[in-house]
Design a protein around this nucleic acid. Structure first.
Length: 810
DNA sequence: GAGTTTGAAACT
DNA sequence: CAGTTTCAAACTC
């Protein structure tokens, strides 16, 4: 555990020449810092530098393959594609870039508060540190989770404690912030001691854990080789390794770690996205003054579940939490409450602020994909009283006025903290386990968690959002195969899942990662969205008064339905509310959202024409051919809205209609949905939760919003994906033989107008011959599978299927 | 709620 | 690559 401390200290001193100015040494500053997480910045900074000096290359957690980046981006793109890229694959670059201004700021202002501000705005600097310091482990884990959606990042299982968690530090930390207010002198002394020891030992702690982490990872690797197929996941052993390593760190924290680490991690995993949103919530609502200030300050009691975001605020609070496992554990539910609360707050606020990306309530388990959102969320230092304190303390003006002013700020700070803490705790029971829009009550949640899997499932099915808030029910796959919807979606299973022997949990992160890697090795796009949609296809064109909404979204590989005729949810295309394409191998396709081939569409047209004939016999000749002549462009899905008035049904959203109509009616409505989706100018399958930057046309925003209100935010597996299809995938050129879409291809740029045409053609699966000229040339995701593009007529399909009375075609 | 059907995923 | 098996969701009764 010997470390080249001298070198590191040198490096540290170089980067922070003014690390100990008069301000920091002053009692006033100590006291103030004692009441705020300012001091943590110092530790984090040290660890960051330690990392920088010790490891020239970024930690392996940054080695997220581009594919994963795409996947992650698919979830983030809706918010901010650029930000997403910054938050993920470019995190290393980002780190390097943000570090410079941060250090510059430090040089400009040696005040810790200033540093806090810097850290709050440059969270990635913390992330760059992947080593053992508590303040760095969390960021590292955060990064790990960022890439864990790809499950590619090695698990950083190092304990969340280090040498910095010495007795004095812990005592000092425990005082914050309430006790400090009551006993400033003691806190002052403890703080000074803690600072001194941290300065001297933070490197030791980091150094201590570095080999431990390595050993830990090696242990995991060995286990991987030993029991790749073992029933007990290797992560279990890693967990043990964690504990062992933690014991090496320090006796004070080890026991507490054992108590809390597992639980905290589990909770944290489930709340990652919420934590991210919480961070964003704070950012968003920074103008809301005390409320948000308290949210931020309330971190002092937040357990690990919140630290993913909290890591952006490097603070002794973290180590305090770790050292106080009891506190962390007991408050974990509060965290969930707070986070959920903040999530909803954020959603509301984000919807009111144009500058913010539109994010709806997110499904639970988004952790793997959205944990990186925290990185995208600049944290305002305005929320922290440190900035205001800094105003008092800057220029080393430590006169009485400064002391009084700073004390006032601190007092307000602590008061608001308490208030918000109370208010947030009230939301706990309602928000904690209500993954989908908080619709489940605490009693329901408890019942759900206590009951059997079936009971869980039943409960879930009874909940109002159950239809969309899908939870797996895996029995044998251990939720480690694509059979598992959660796993396939890149999310962890949650309590509401009814799965058995589930390993798709944060505790088995490494197992999940390895499994995922294996699957990806077989199929690099196995975790890519199955539904690819061109959001910009929303550029509906009004042709001849008809809205030509291309059903751009398609199943990437296409379905292979044989008996369901693509009219049931067995069909992935139908399930995703997308039409079948020529890439589908389905037989007897009657997908109401769009059939595979043209012939079926012509039958629809015939049906439409027949309807016209019936209603307007005087104007139209009964000959359907003549009808087509009258309306030459009617052979398009876009024209289907015209016949909406001929149908006895009024459109209702799928979720609303599903439960209130008979099966036969439902299928008929499915048919109607095919064109009503066009009517609504957007496919329902287009992700209502994550607005793609590509969907820039304003008229669709309302559609999105409306759909957003009506549909659950938990449709992770189908609809969420398509709109979030990474640009690189959306525009990816796929060889014609890449029917399995296994090969990511180079980006192909096509003229907008051409794409529009192409998309239009895609909206008419099985469109007219004239439409085939587009031939998916630039829609590589749906390669023309000519062998399967045989006419539906050959299959013997009848137009009656589309008339909405297929009832049960089996 | 149990059993059946279905098609994707996994396996050979 | 094709055929088979496994699996979990969808569906039916």
């Amino acid at each position: 555990m010997e470390s080249p401390e001298g070198d590191r200290i040198k490096a540290t001193s170089l980067s922070t020449p003014g690390s100990s100015p008069a301000v920091q040494e002053s009692p006033v500053f100590n006291f103030i810092s004692n009441l705020s997480p300012i001091n943590s910045v110092k530790a984090a900074r040290y660890t960051q530098r330690f990392f920088e000096t010790q490891f020239p290359t970024p930690p392996p957690v940054f080695r997220t393959p581009r594919l994963d980046l795409q996947r992650e981006t698919s979830f983030l793109k809706s918010n901010d594609a650029d930000a997403a890229s910054r938050g993920y694959g470019d995190c290393g670059n980002r780190m390097s870039t943000v570090l410079v201004p941060c250090i510059q700021k430090e040089l400009q202002s040696c005040s810790p508060s200033g540093c806090v501000d810097d850290y709050l705005t440059d969270p990635v600097e913390v992330e760059g540190c992947s080593n053992s310091n508590e303040l760095c482990v969390q960021p590292a884990k955060n990064v790990s989770k960022l890439s864990s959606s790809g499950f590619n990042s090695p698990t950083i299982t190092s304990p969340k404690v280090n040498g910095a968690n010495d007795r004095n530090s812990e005592d000092f930390m425990h005082m914050l912030p309430d006790q400090a207010e009551e006993d400033p002198l003691r806190s002052l002394a403890l703080f000074e001691t803690a600072i001194e020891q941290r300065d001297a030992e933070s490197f030791d702690g980091s150094h201590k854990l570095t080999p431990t982490e390595k050993a830990d990872q090696n242990t995991g690797t060995q286990h991987n080789g030993q029991d790749g197929s073992s029933q007990s996941p290797k992560n279990l052993q890693n967990v043990e390794a964690d504990k062992n390593s933690s014991e090496n760190v320090g006796p004070v924290s080890t026991g507490l770690l054992k108590e809390s680490t597992s639980h905290q991690r589990g909770i944290r995993r489930h709340l990652q996205f919420e934590a991210a949103l919480a961070g964003k919530c704070i950012t968003t609502s920074k103008s809301h003054s005390s409320h948000n200030v308290t949210q931020e300050s309330d971190n002092s009691t937040l357990p690990a579940s919140f630290r993913d975001w909290e890591s952006l605020i490097p603070s002794d609070i973290e180590s305090r939490e770790v050292s106080s496992g009891r506190e962390a554990t007991s408050s974990s539910q509060n965290v969930a409450s707070r986070l959920s609360f903040c999530q909803s707050e954020f959603v509301r606020s984000s919807q009111n602020e144009e500058s913010l990306p539109l994010i709806g309530p997110l499904p639970p388990g988004f952790s793997l994909h959205l944990s990186s959102m925290a990185e995208l969320m600049p944290i305002s230092s305005d929320l922290m009283p440190t900035g205001r304190i800094h105003d008092y303390l800057k220029n080393d003006q430590l006169d009485d006025q400064a002391v009084v002013g700073a004390s006032l700020v601190i007092s307000q700070y602590t008061d608001s903290m308490k208030q918000i803490s109370d208010s947030l705790q009230m939301t706990l029971s309602e928000q904690q386990a209500a993954p989908c829009e908080g619709m489940m009550l605490t009693s329901e949640i408890e019942e759900l968690n206590q009951g059997s899997p079936k009971k869980k499932r039943q409960k879930a099915s009874n909940s109002s959002e159950s239809e969309d808030c899908k939870r797996c029910n895996c029995k044998k796959s251990k939720c480690l195969k694509l059979y598992c919807d959660c796993f396939a979606a890149g999310i962890y299973c949650i309590d509401s899942c009814a799965c058995e022997s589930c390993f798709n949990k944060p505790e088995y992160e490494e197992t999940v990662t390895d499994t995922r890697q294996q699957i990806q090795s077989r199929n690099p796009l196995a975790f890519a969205p199955k539904i690819v949609g061109h959001a910009d296809s929303a550029a509906n064109v009004v042709e001849d008064g008809n809205l030509t909404t291309p059903a751009s979204a398609r199943h990437k590989r296409g379905c292979n339905c044989k008996k369901s005729k693509c009219l049931k949810k067995y069909c992935e295309c139908f399930q995703a509310n997308v039409g079948c394409s020529d890439g589908c191998r389905c037989e007897g396709c009657s997908n109401s959202f769009g059939r595979k081939t043209e012939s079926k569409y012509q039958k629809v047209q015939r049906w439409e024409n027949q309807s016209h004939v019936k209603l307007d016999a005087a104007a139209n000749v009964t000959d359907s051919t003549k009808t087509r002549t009258i309306k030459p462009f009617s052979a398009r899905w876009e024209d289907l809205p015209d016949m909406s008035h001929l149908t006895p049904l009024s459109y209702s959203y799928p979720e609303a209609e599903a439960s209130s109509v008979s099966p036969s009616m439902r299928e008929f409505q499915n048919v109607r949905r095919a064109h009503l989706h066009q009517e609504s100018s957007f496919q329902s399958s287009v992700n209502p939760h994550w607005q793609s930057p590509m969907s820039s046309m304003p008229q669709f925003h309302e559609d999105f919003a409306e759909h957003n209100r009506r549909s659950s935010y938990c449709k992770v597996h189908d609809t969420t994906k398509e709109d979030n299809m990474p640009e690189i995938q959306k525009d990816t050129s796929t060889p014609s033989n890449a029917s399995k879409a296994d090969i990511p291809n180079k980006k192909q740029i096509s003229p907008p107008q051409f794409q529009s045409q192409e998309l239009r053609s895609s909206s008419t699966p099985g469109g007219l011959e004239s439409d085939h000229k587009f031939s998916w040339k630039n829609v590589p995701s749906f390669p023309p599978l000519t062998p399967y593009s045989k006419s539906k007529d050959d299959i013997g399909q009848t137009g009656s299927d589309f008339k909405g009375h297929p009832s049960d075609n089996r």
